[in-house]
Design a protein around this nucleic acid. Structure first.
Lengths: 142, 142
DNA sequence: ATATTTGCAAATAATTTGCAGTCGA
DNA sequence: TCGACTGCAAATTATTTGCAAATAT
């Protein structure tokens, strides 16, 4: 048990180093949280969930760390939600689907990411494809 | 001059009726503003720009009207900006490109909108494709 | 007449900032 | 030691809400 946890921490720290992020304890914990919880948590969710095991953690630090990780390219901000940002440790191109009824956000990893041909002299750095609609759970006819 | 303006107002009002929106004066003005200003203004920009010619206008009304127009499907919320919503009277599928340097948001209307094949039982209602990168103006080598 | 819409001020919610204390190399 | 990082409280920003007055049909 303990060994598994330590290995996870180590994996998190190594990945961070790879992105040029110094693996400080809070950063490692938050990054690992994002790797474990692939449901695009908000800053506040991360704060609340980690606060239990890290009582010294502050909201400011969560924001600082998330911004830092985004700048370094280790995590992605997902802007599918209206007034709050969500974060994703999966930086590969993939589509986000948000159910308009249950509000759940799905990763559509199996769906091929569309190729977009940009006009001359436009250079793309990141592409987000956000789909809103009805998910299988909610489309069941009662 | 006056005739042109009146025709524009009338066009705005007719389109609103078509969407099932009662063409009240503020709604007509805001909707026409969005048709004239296709640069995805924020609620605050709309408020500031219209306040001059409509001194009685309040921020609350701008928000009310925008939300109403979104619900009725007359305008679209563009969530390419981090912490504020932008609005677009062009409800046809098109790609938004935001320059990371000058922050301008372009409509890529000439670029074909990608087809996305959803997994079984996922139903799509709206799709947003947001690309961030460098625009032609900013990619000029000094 | 009655339901809808407006506008002000206050409330809310997410995020940032200032600054003093703390940690890591 | 020195710069990077943290945490608290206060500030900022976008948006919503409660409620009374105005408006539309």
């Amino acid at each position: 048990m303990r060994d598994v946890k330590q290995m996870e921490q180590k994996e998190s720290a190594e990945k961070l180093s790879h992105f040029g992020v110094r693996p400080l304890s809070h950063r490692v914990a938050i990054y690992r949280y994002l790797m474990d919880n692939k449901n695009h948590p908000t800053a506040d969710t991360i704060y609340t969930d980690l606060k239990g095991s890290m009582p010294s953690l502050s909201r400011t630090t969560v924001y600082n760390v998330l911004n830092h990780l985004c700048e370094k390219g280790a995590v992605r901000k997902v802007s599918i939600e209206e007034h709050e940002s969500r974060y994703d440790a999966d930086i590969s191109d993939h589509i986000h689907f948000k159910c308009m009824l249950c509000k759940k956000v799905y990763d559509l990893v199996a769906v091929p990411f569309p190729e977009v041909k940009l006009p001359a002299n436009f250079t793309s750095v990141t592409t987000q494809v956000n789909i809103e609609g009805i998910c299988p759970d909610c489309s069941v006819i009662g």
